[in-house]
Simulated scan of single mutants.
Amino acid sequence: MKVAICAAAVLAACATPMMAQAQSSVTLYGIIDNGIAYTNSVASSITTQGASRWSMQTGWGSGDRVGFTGREDLGGGLAAVFTLEMGFSAVNGTSSQGGRLFGRQAFVGLDSNTYGRFTMGRQYDFTFDYIAPMLSWLQFGSIYGAHVGDVDNTFQTVRLNNTVKYEVSPLQGLKLGAIYAFSNQAGGPDGQGFANNRAFGFGATYKRGGLHAAATYLQLDQPSAGQPGGSNPNGANGGEYTFSTAIFYNAGFVERQRIAAVGAGYDFGQLSVNAVFTDTHLNYRGDQSTRVDNYEVNTRYMFTPAISAGIGYIFTDASGFTGTGATSYASGSHPRWHQVNAGASYLLSKRTDLHASVVFQRQAGDAEATAINFFGPAGTNQKNQIAILAGLRHRF
């Protein structure tokens, strides 16, 4: 009898971790995406002479990444969740997002079937979660097809540090969310303290049948304090304004950035159509300000389960302060840009595809800089910039 009891105890002890393991999961995932690109003109700055370039590029269809995501069932419809995701370049093996180990995402939280999802860490805001899936760059174009200067952060130039994020679904198809990113500073006067380099926002999205719609708002207070040499590099913005095509951020010291976005679309089976509007206000030091509106329409068609293609048009309308000296991107207060994104994909398997895209951008109005996302400005006396790309992407 004692032997039977001991044997049962041993079996129970062995079974316990197996049961716990069955209720938990950790997934390794990633994307590797390399290709060849031609650009008609690339320059080191807005005011220098550009030249054509052939180059190998990485992550241009989808940013290269490796990540871990996990979920543990805690019972009663509650689970612990986490994500750790790093970005890198598959061309040279270097880290992206300023060399951060997990620069794309890093968060932990709780997910409840009844009360929603609460997470803490480095996270996307709702312009990416709810609006970006309707944009051409994410659907079929390339990361170089983001809106001019990514002034509306729909490409997530700025991922938010120190965030608490909450999402809940009160009705079927409806999701509501709010996010707050701490400055991590003690109280103090203007330009310092609790509001120095903080952010907050909210969003709503609705999906039913083929219809999907979303609206979001994001505000960043004193985000330039996170730039190198700023007064708070450990706040919400960790110095991510620094790249050559961020022409609106480079125009001056940003004291406040406000982004409102709305979008809607419909899937008709093989055909999908989307329309998105974003309105961005930038307040600079010295009582200067800029307003930038982006209007995008796009469509995508699935010819077969393996072949798809799409095209999108973006009109960017800006007004106000346009910078000075080497950072000036306009001759007057009303620059405009036209941009066309086109792309196609052929699935070799469920995880591997060949894809190609074309991004064309043209100055209009008072604009004097053409700058396709990440490629660099076209340079002086270049009213048009075009990038043609083709590559291979593998997901795992």
Score class of each variant (00 low, 15 high):
residue 272 S to R: 13
residue 244 S to R: 15
residue 135 L to A: 11
residue 120 M to T: 13
residue 380 T to H: 01
residue 95 S to E: 05
residue 374 F to Q: 09
residue 221 D to I: 08
residue 362 R to I: 03
residue 365 G to H: 07
residue 369 A to T: 02
residue 151 V to A: 14
residue 252 G to D: 14
residue 124 Y to C: 09
residue 328 S to K: 15
residue 121 G to C: 12
residue 63 G to L: 06
residue 31 I to C: 13
residue 343 G to E: 08
residue 193 G to T: 00
residue 324 T to C: 10
residue 67 G to D: 08
residue 217 Y to P: 07
residue 24 S to F: 09
residue 71 R to P: 05
residue 281 H to C: 03
residue 120 M to F: 14
residue 196 N to Q: 13
residue 15 A to F: 10
residue 3 V to L: 13
residue 68 F to D: 04
residue 227 Q to W: 10
residue 173 G to A: 04
residue 381 N to G: 06
residue 340 V to K: 10
residue 346 Y to S: 09
residue 358 V to D: 01
residue 53 R to Y: 06
residue 264 A to Y: 06
residue 194 F to C: 10
residue 367 A to T: 00
residue 90 A to C: 02
residue 16 T to K: 15
residue 261 A to Y: 09
residue 102 F to S: 08
residue 68 F to L: 14
residue 365 G to F: 01
residue 195 A to G: 12
residue 126 F to R: 06
residue 290 T to L: 09
residue 19 M to Q: 14
residue 358 V to E: 00
residue 40 N to Q: 08
residue 171 L to E: 12
residue 112 S to Y: 04
residue 36 I to F: 15
residue 382 Q to D: 02
residue 183 S to Y: 09
residue 129 D to M: 07
residue 228 P to T: 07
residue 251 A to Q: 12
residue 287 D to V: 13
residue 214 A to H: 02
residue 318 A to C: 08
residue 335 P to H: 01
residue 219 Q to A: 09
residue 385 Q to C: 02
residue 129 D to T: 11
residue 269 G to K: 05
residue 343 G to L: 09
residue 322 T to W: 05
residue 253 F to C: 15
residue 138 L to T: 15
residue 362 R to M: 10
residue 394 H to M: 07
residue 73 D to Y: 01
residue 159 R to L: 12
residue 41 S to F: 06
residue 393 R to A: 05
residue 342 A to P: 01
residue 320 G to A: 10
residue 330 A to M: 14
residue 308 S to H: 12
residue 94 T to R: 11
residue 346 Y to D: 07
residue 95 S to R: 14
